[in-house]
Nucleic acid binder design. Structure first.
Lengths: 267, 267
DNA sequence: CGGCGCGGCTGGTATATACCAACTCGATTC
DNA sequence: GAATCGAGTTGGTATATACCAGCCGCGCCG
């Protein structure tokens, strides 16, 4: 319904003849089913959050088997139009939230600006010994003490991401005693005088594995977006690593870039 | 095999007890199948580009049905470990290419730096009348003449993205007469004196629709990443809009961010 | 009135089978 | 030697069916 949804549809590709031909040939059942619901969602006939009828009912109504129904539903899920909750049903996805991973605004602030309600829950906080991966990426000895904080973040009551935060104990002693359901950036600045100077961000599509899927209340293997953020201080020391697992249909990443300089070449 | 692949596996989530319990309960056939191939790929026993046996052979070897095999293969595909070519077979995915959408380097340059071979093919070039979407985003009248360029870009011979470039004819007259299989940024700077000053980038996971899927040689509905880039000049005029459709398993987005400023709050 | 249990509903996993459509590659033909 | 044809192979779509596992609500029981 929002502009974001319609962008892919408004694209005009090069060979319209090809497209026209495709209308002549037989369209698979699952695709007609998909098109039907995609249209209803995009026109707003099905409001976000609406629950779809049970798979068995859909199969009967459309005179196709449940297997075919599930093929179509999975497709709509991949497209981000609907989502499912394990053994509870299929629902129309809410509009995506815009998120700028490099901006000077945090999650809560950014969501609030969009007129939506952000929520944060601390799932766990503990002190552990650095694994191989952590020692490499945090720049500490293997087995050195680190804090591990796991949080669930939601928009309008729907969980959209789980994150795991890794911080060296030596750098922020006593961190776990502070309230952790708010901005880590602010906390580290206020209590430890640590200012984020630079961040290295990685993103890639993935499938949600068991633990993050369970935390988000989704079926394992559903598409997701992995986003990691390494935060460096003024002296280029890594002070925090944040690993985020997003529902793939919840996010619209928006970044603004400074332009290429005159002297440099592109491409 | 690369570090990027193993990150999700090295994550240590909060409730290891839960994880332990999961080993006791029955693991579905499709998951064991998945685990088997995921392990072979991650250890390098299956090299990138390797073709998997036909689905029917896999079904027989593992004593499961082809439906179940396909469920597992689709899962591995969502995870980015394997990909398929329409009616040709399943293959092990090559390592992802790192890509910084906001850096001062173009596609070819960036790929080359990673020791890989970039390729660009112009699929089509034409002049059309601006659609509603184009007039809105390019900032021109509806029906105004615009150039539409469609290109296919590959890494090591494998198509990784299709892009569609929209440029106002008024701004770059005669553009289509220049060679278009190279840097558009350079071309616009050299021939028209247009310097990229700022870019607005949007990204989100999606499913590849028919046209981009066909161009990439993949099955429609496979996961993809949609990336659009609006390029503004010195006077904040939109001079170019680039819409890119990536194979989701080909890309590892890396961006470097300037830190949050001292006076601002994060979250 | 509150907690517990059970049954029904939902999606999750799996079998067995069939036919279709596109690609491959070798053989045949011009 | 190049173009064409065709058979076989591969994935794509679809039916019909069965049982399992977790969620939910109703009703029973304390």
């Amino acid at each position: 319904m929002t502009e974001a949804w319609t962008i892919p549809q408004t694209i005009r590709w090069s060979i319209p003849d090809e497209t026209r031909k495709s209308w002549d040939r037989k369209i698979p059942y699952y695709m007609r089913f998909r098109d039907h619901f995609a249209a209803m969602i995009e026109t707003g006939a099905l409001a976000p959050g609406t629950r779809l009828p049970p798979e068995r009912a859909l199969a009967e109504d459309f005179s196709i088997t449940r297997v075919t129904v599930r093929q179509a539903l999975t497709r709509l899920e991949t497209e981000g139009l609907i989502f499912r909750e394990e053994r509870r049903g299929w629902f129309v996805s809410p509009p995506r939230v815009r998120y700028d991973p490099i901006a000077n605004t945090g999650f809560t602030e950014s969501i609030t600006e969009q007129g939506r309600v952000a929520g944060t829950t601390v799932l766990s906080k503990q002190q552990v010994a650095a694994s191989q991966w952590e020692s490499t990426h945090l720049g500490c000895a293997l087995g050195a003490p680190i804090y591990l904080i796991s949080r669930l973040r939601s928009v309008d009551g729907r969980a959209v991401l789980v994150e795991q935060i890794h911080i060296k104990v030596a750098r922020c002693p006593g961190l776990l005693d502070y309230p952790l359901d708010q901005s880590m950036t602010d906390l580290m600045a206020d209590k430890y005088g640590i200012i984020e100077h630079r961040a290295q961000i990685n993103m890639r599509p993935t499938a949600l594995s068991e633990i993050p899927a369970k935390a988000l209340g989704v079926t394992v293997g559903t598409p997701g977006l992995y986003l990691s953020r390494a935060i460096l201080d003024q002296s280029d020391q890594v002070v925090e690593i944040d690993q985020e697992f997003w529902r793939h249909d919840a996010i619209d990443i928006c970044v603004s870039a400074a332009g290429r300089h005159e002297s440099e070449s592109g491409d």
